[in-house]
Amino acid sequence: MKNLRNTILLAMISTVIGVYTGNAQKKYIDKNANIVFEASEKLFEEVKAETESATAILDTETNEIASLALVKGFRFKNSLMQEHFNENYIESDTYPKATFKGELLDFDSSKLTESPSEILVDGTLGLHGKEKDIRTTLSVRKVEDAIVMEGAFKVAPEDFDIEIPKLVRSKIAKEVLVQINFNLVGR
């Protein structure tokens, strides 16, 4: 009898705990994450592409952030440039994804306000079958129930073994500026 009571008590406690932790939002997701990269040189045609269908996930318990962009989802103004980018430079048939896995340092989601705070992020960018460590600051703020993140960092094509032919080298910047804009909604 006592045993049964204990079992019921235990079941009740675990249910309460389960419901409680289940309600606490831990994961924030953006399914339409915005990523822009630009490698334009002055006087030459704009080398810029944008995607609005990348994925970003933030776990506010572990402060881990993961993002994935399908390379074919990047749109250029010039369709021929887009084709060359996919076929000759980034080889999107072989390497369809660009990924980022990292961690927000000294981040506490409960302390977020509507005024942006600068958060350091440490992680790895994977692209074209290569990986590179990235350390940058993100501007993070709370907008209603969502967490908004904005940031920019620079990478070089050779970091990812992407070769730019001599013929077009002068038209493409040595450093590529990557801008991100995530609007993460609690799930």
Partner: peptide, 8 residues
């Protein structure tokens, strides 16, 4: 079809 997102 853009591809497969293995995060989601």
């Amino acid at each position: 079809c853009v591809g497969y997102d293995d995060l989601l």
